[in-house]
């Protein structure tokens, strides 16, 4: 049995919930096992996970689980995994997954393989493929324990629907809470969070100052993309800290990463080099970023970014 933990927020599934369900169902197929999902806290529609290959959804419907608490989440997920005899528990490598995976694996006496992008089956031996050395290489991991806890980097799979309609079962599992008290949550709302964004428009010191970010916002809006920035931009407080990508910021792997006025230092690339398609806009033809790019435009960004925004708008108007 495979158990996936499907994350939600404000009673709705996060995008990564569908992705982790899909990974679970792919693994279940490979191993000829069943895959169940667990959903925690108040939820509007747990059955929304239908159609991603899950055969059963367990809903622990207790509002004390609405906010993340690592003790409580560990107790419930480990408790259910033990009851079902699950040998694999899958999570998303999100802020929550990073805080929980290690703890959960120790509780389950399981191998812990975090931040994978997928698996492969080598002659009957399952291996997890994980970016290492800040995206500069991949490692193929095997578990040397009977159980595994594995976390998947968001945006690793393209989510497609499969035809299964699982039953939802309400479930009670006992838990204790940690002594950590949440006093305030300070997050932007209404935007796709950076790690989950399929398209990202990112800008660097070439922007000259925070007052010039309108053209970046406009391009991002036209593309339905999330904005990001390089480290000096966040350090100078031109942009908020949570937009900072790279070695010291966050690592992302969107389908499209557009880098504008960013030189492409190795520590910046460390956070974005697993993006599927990279576009670089820079006026210096020698900028190292061009070597990591799929498409490049060598020009003044103040000139070319508005033109790109117009072209995207024209494309959208022509293609509905």
């Amino acid at each position: 049995m495979i158990l996936v933990f499907a994350e939600s927020k404000d009673g709705k599934f996060k995008k990564n919930a569908f992705e982790i369900a899909l990974l679970g169902s792919q693994l279940a197929k490979e191993r000829n096992q069943d895959c169940a999902a667990v959903v925690l806290g108040d939820h509007h529609q747990p059955s929304e996970l239908s159609g991603y290959g899950i055969s059963k959804i367990y809903h622990v419907n207790n509002s004390a689980l609405n906010d993340f608490d690592d003790f409580a989440y560990r107790d419930v997920i480990a408790g259910l995994a033990n009851e079902l005899g699950a040998n694999t528990v899958l999570l998303s490598h999100t802020a929550l997954g990073k805080a929980l995976a290690g703890r959960l694996s120790v509780r389950l006496e399981a191998a812990c393989i975090s931040a994978v992008k997928g698996f492969e089956n080598t002659g009957g031996q399952l291996r997890w493929v994980k970016p290492v050395f800040s995206g500069k290489a991949f490692a193929h991991y095997e578990a040397v324990a009977e159980k595994s806890v594995v976390s998947l980097i968001p945006n690793s799979l393209s989510v497609t629907k499969a035809e299964v309609s699982p039953e939802v079962e309400e479930k009670d599992v006992e838990f204790n809470k940690s002594k950590v008290e949440l006093v305030e949550r300070n997050v932007v709302t209404g935007k796709v969070p950076l790690p989950e964004a399929e398209r990202v428009v990112s800008a660097g010191r070439g922007m000259k100052g925070p007052e010039n970010w309108d053209i970046i916002e406009e391009l991002a809006e036209a593309l339905n993309a999330t904005t990001a920035c390089s480290r000096p931009v966040a350090d100078s407080e031109w942009r908020p800290h949570h937009e900072h990508v790279g070695q010291t910021g966050i690592a992302i792997r969107p389908n499209l990463y557009i880098a504008i006025g960013i030189s492409g230092a190795i520590q910046h690339l460390a956070g974005v080099n697993n993006s599927k398609v990279i576009v670089v806009i820079n006026k210096d033809s020698e900028a190292p970023f061009f070597k990591a790019a799929d498409y490049g435009v060598c020009a003044d960004l103040f000139d070319v970014v508005p033109k790109l925004t117009e072209a995207v708008k024209r494309f959208k108007a022509d293609n509905g």
Partner: peptide, 18 residues
Amino acid sequence: RTRIQEFELPEDKGAVKM
């Protein structure tokens, strides 16, 4: 509890299209 069986370098991106 885990073992790395193999490392691998990413495929070459190919030349940038300007």
